[in-house]
């Protein structure tokens, strides 16, 4: 087991290095945004003196390298500075939004992952049957449609025409858990439809790839029934690629949901990021980007660890 712990720490270390590199990229990208931040904040009518004073107040007159390390030093302690627009603490402004986004992602994942794996197993078991084809075509259609289109279709059929679910996903802290779930159902469903296909197809093909293995033939020749061959003999050896695709899709659920948030007016972090970019509110932009990057790195790390833990050779060393 020591080996596994060692590998995890090594990956964690690498993840931190990656995050550091990304922080440099984020910082320089924001630096390179066209236009002057002080000018953007003060508006067109500001005098030169005002702009200069603003720059000094924001510390923009100092070299970028100094500002980078200052920002990084504070970020490590959880302090991302103050928003230039609202003057609020960035961390507190973000945390509520980020919690909402995480909640929505979790909601979608709790539905999507089991459904995708189940569909993957079933399509592998009944491969090349009408069920398999229908499932493939349906999920491919849903993945090929843009999220906003899916979202509006769902609103049209499940909200406007039938009134089953609310079309706006505006939630706030006072709402009860189930009320939130109801309000967020349509955006969650939209995201489920977007991610299921990828995970299902990977599950299906990972299992089918293994069906030619000698140990699967051995299981057949032992008279093991078809469903058990898939669930007991193929699936345990297929986890590594499946887990990787799940991690990628979970990361997408957290970081790629701007359009869904816009369609359903959901108070998530994606909308906030877009707003901040247009307003040149660079402390918020940097914080959001860093959080997204950390999410990606952590989920990929989790996938690596998951793949290691499902590998019997690593779990039970000689």
């Amino acid at each position: 087991m020591n080996d596994v712990v060692k590998i995890i720490f090594k990956r964690l270390g690498l993840g931190l290095v990656t995050l550091l590199v990304i922080s440099v990229i984020i910082f320089s990208a924001v630096e390179m945004l066209p236009g002057d931040i002080a000018q953007a904040v003060l508006g067109q009518g500001a005098t030169k003196e005002n702009v200069a004073a603003m720059r000094e107040q924001l510390g923009l007159d100092r070299p970028a390298v100094v500002r980078y390390f200052e920002w990084l030093g504070n970020a490590v302690t959880g302090d991302f500075g103050h928003s230039l627009v609202s003057q609020k603490q960035v961390s507190s402004a973000i945390s509520e939004r980020f919690a909402n986004t995480l909640f929505l992602a979790l909601y979608a994942a709790v539905i999507a992952v089991p459904v995708a794996i189940l569909l993957g197993v079933l399509t592998a078991l009944w491969r090349n049957t009408p069920f398999d084809r229908v499932a493939n075509v349906a999920t491919l259609t849903s993945i090929s449609s843009p999220e906003f289109f899916l979202g509006y279709i769902l609103i049209l059929f499940l909200s406007v025409k039938t009134g089953y679910f609310p079309s706006l996903a505006k939630i706030n802290a006072e709402m009860g858990f189930f009320e939130k779930l109801e309000r967020m159902f349509l955006p969650a469903l939209t995201m489920v439809l977007v991610v299921v296909a990828h995970m299902m197809r990977m599950t299906r093909s990972a299992i089918i790839n293994l069906l030619a293995s000698p140990y699967i033939e051995m299981a057949r020749l032992k008279g093991v029934p078809g469903w058990r061959i898939i669930t007991h003999h193929a699936l345990p050896n297929a986890w590594a690629p499946i887990i990787n695709v799940i991690a990628l899709n979970l990361a997408y659920l957290v970081t790629g949901v701007v359009l869904v948030e816009v369609v359903f007016v959901f108070p998530g972090i994606g909308q906030m990021l877009v707003d901040s970019v247009t307003k040149r509110d660079f402390p918020v932009v940097q914080a959001c980007c860093l959080i997204f990057a950390a999410t990606f790195i952590l989920l990929n790390l989790a996938a690596d660890v998951g793949a290691i833990l499902t590998n019997p050779r690593l779990r039970h060393p000689k």
Binding site: P214, Y215, E217, M218, L221
Partner: peptide
């Protein structure tokens, strides 16, 4: 009928035991 015969009445020993045992169990 065939499945109930295999393993129970007729069994198979493969060339490569290393490949024919499921690594996960």
């Amino acid at each position: 009928e065939l499945a109930s015969l295999r393993g129970a009445k007729i069994a198979y020993v493969a060339q490569s035991a290393a490949a024919s045992f499921n690594p996960a169990h």
